[in-house]
Amino acid sequence: MRRERFLGVALGTFLIAIGLGASWSVASDQPPEGKIASVAVRLYLTEGSLPTDDPNAASWNAIQPSEFNLAPQVHWPDRIQEVTVKTVKVRGMHNGQDLAVMVEYEDPTESPADAAALEFMVGDQKAHFAHGQEMIQVEGGPVNIWYWKKADGKGTDMSAKGFKTIRAQDQQDVSATGVWQGGTWRVVFSRPLATGDEHDVQITPGEWRSIAFAFWDGELVDGEAREKGSQKAVSSWWSVRAEPTPDNSMYGYVVLGIAIAAGFEFFLVRKIRRGNHA
């Protein structure tokens, strides 16, 4: 009688395990369709040096870009209602030491005042995407801005916390280079993952950070740049993550799971057989 009860429980457990597995697999949701824009930038893990000086390097083209829509900056004055850059393709890679992010966007004219910028939250504190401006109910943090302008020919590492507080940092860690070809800018920003500067975003492989974008079409119209200062194309926050080094220990757990399941089967059958022969 006791043995029978044990067999019942063991068999029941087995059936429940199979039943749960089967219902879990038939119940899985399909991924939503029709989503065009991305939500995150992935910095692919590669080996060796990064193509920081060459926006047209073959290794860039091998990466599947993320794509984000941009809006005219209408959040604060001076606003702009129409901007040149409507979308941006973003590719990224890192080698465990340094990272590189390449933005690709359409701009029909090449001008000295053409510019591009990446923006990041710094540390754990949330910061408003508009230069870390003050939030009324939430204590906000600063932002780190990586700025590139064609005329400068270099990247500038900047900080801001609120409007009119943007300034170049004392410790410059960002490099940038841009190439314009047939109506398309490709600008590569690069930096060490970790800088040791508290004003910078620190990128740790496997951890998510927030990123936003801004672009200026510097084409001269009546002697003035078409877009400058707060008149630019912007995005709000999206996510970015440097790919972590693959963790192979999980395959050990998979093998362990298979072994435990197989062992369970073996002992279950043995127990039932013994019960039947008792």
Binding site: G21, S25, P244
Partner: peptide, 15 residues
């Protein structure tokens, strides 16, 4: 059955 358990483990752990 063991493969299902293995697959479940993988999907839970895969980054």
């Amino acid at each position: 059955f063991p493969l299902l358990v293995g697959w479940q483990t993988y999907t839970k752990l895969a980054p």
